[in-house]
Design a protein around this nucleic acid. Structure first.
Lengths: 201, 201
DNA sequence: GTGATTCCAGACTATATAGTCTAGAATAAT
DNA sequence: ATTATTCTAGACTATATAGTCTGGAATCAC
């Protein structure tokens, strides 16, 4: 009956995601997207809708990819501390290109029009998801006595969200592994001093 | 001889800075800038050059303003820990509007075209300045025995730069004072446990 | 082959907006 | 009053780019 789709929408979306990741929403022109995705205008609009819809799909793709990766990394580590170490040191050890492109969702947060509640709500939801992933791991850490009962796992999960975003911002500006590793080491000290975030209330 | 300037360029620049701060570079149209600054197109171009030049001047203004404020805050506090507490808790306690606009320079970092080395270098220079301000305070903290000799003041200064940027990103997404305060408390724990960032080498 | 669909290439439209230019009024010194 | 300058208002230009539309070739089922 009809000619079947020739390109794989999944692969094309991944390509689009990569371009948005490197350039940001504004700087990724349709021209560039078409070229990167290897498809023509028509196919792009037919398959993904307009540029904004494509961007939202790319964000969702990015979220699923990175969150399941983080979750896996934390679950695989018997010691939760090691899991977070791998996370933060892994970030520090990335290439200059990786540091430069940063985090798609952090960029989206700071590039978005303040009035854009769709993107805002997407990102809020994602932050909640990431906090939940961290919280799960940190609760386990507490059970395993890697944290003291005085530590607040919710506070710590938020702390790590903040730390990672800050490190991403720093890495984007200057790919300095040593500096990033220093920051990671300070942050990871929450695991050792058994009374980190409690007393001062 | 001639008609003197009627508007105060300093005040106009401050107004422009505020608009860029709230909206970002792209979303601050010339139309909106003219209105906010209370001057006409011609005067704007005559006085500040093009939009980009105005933005760079606004960034410099912002930097000078915020950095001297931070320095003052840290110098005024006998206890360095209190200084950083005021800094971080002050950030957490800002209004929703303030949280939403975030930090002009963090936004500039994540909004900029990756190829834009002028903005990049400006921001790198600023980060070095902020680190220096923090370092000065942290070195004093070490002399005053608020930190252990094992702590690395350089690492800690970078840690605080990262923490503040991460908190700014988080606050922009959702103005949640409690969450921000939790993060601040965790971060400030570097001052108490006298062996924070050292052992793991 | 026919028909339905999807592909590509590229023309075309619409829109936003940065930047320039023009005209004329206001303000000061001489 | 004259002159030089700065102001406002707004027309105008140039440019980039998102999105639509057209034509024709390729690919499948029948």
């Amino acid at each position: 009956m009809a000619r079947p789709k020739e390109f794989d929408p999944e692969r094309a979306l991944a390509k689009a995601m990569n371009l948005f990741w490197r350039l940001g929403y504004e700087n990724a022109s349709l021209e560039a997207l078409m070229k990167e995705m290897g498809i023509a205008r028509q196919s792009l609009y037919d398959t993904f809708g307009d540029k904004r819809a494509l961007f939202l799909k790319a964000m969702a793709h990015y979220r699923d990819q990175t969150n399941s990766q983080m979750q896996k990394m934390l679950n695989e580590s018997p010691s939760v501390r090691d899991g977070f170490t791998r996370l933060l040191s892994g970030l520090a050890a990335e290439t200059r290109e990786q540091h430069e492109r940063g985090c798609l969702l952090l960029s989206a947060n700071l590039q978005r029009d303040p009035k854009d509640v769709v993107v805002r709500d997407f990102l809020r939801d994602n932050q909640a998801r990431v906090e939940a992933i961290f919280l799960q791991a940190l609760a386990r850490a507490q059970r395993q006595e890697e944290l003291s009962p005085n530590d607040d796992p919710v506070a710590l999960s938020r702390f790590f969200v903040v730390t990672i975003q800050g490190m991403r911002a720093m890495a984007r500006l200057k790919s300095d592994r040593k500096a990033l590793e220093q920051v990671a080491r300070v942050a990871l000290a929450v695991f050792k001093s058994s009374n980190s975030a409690s007393l001062s209330k």
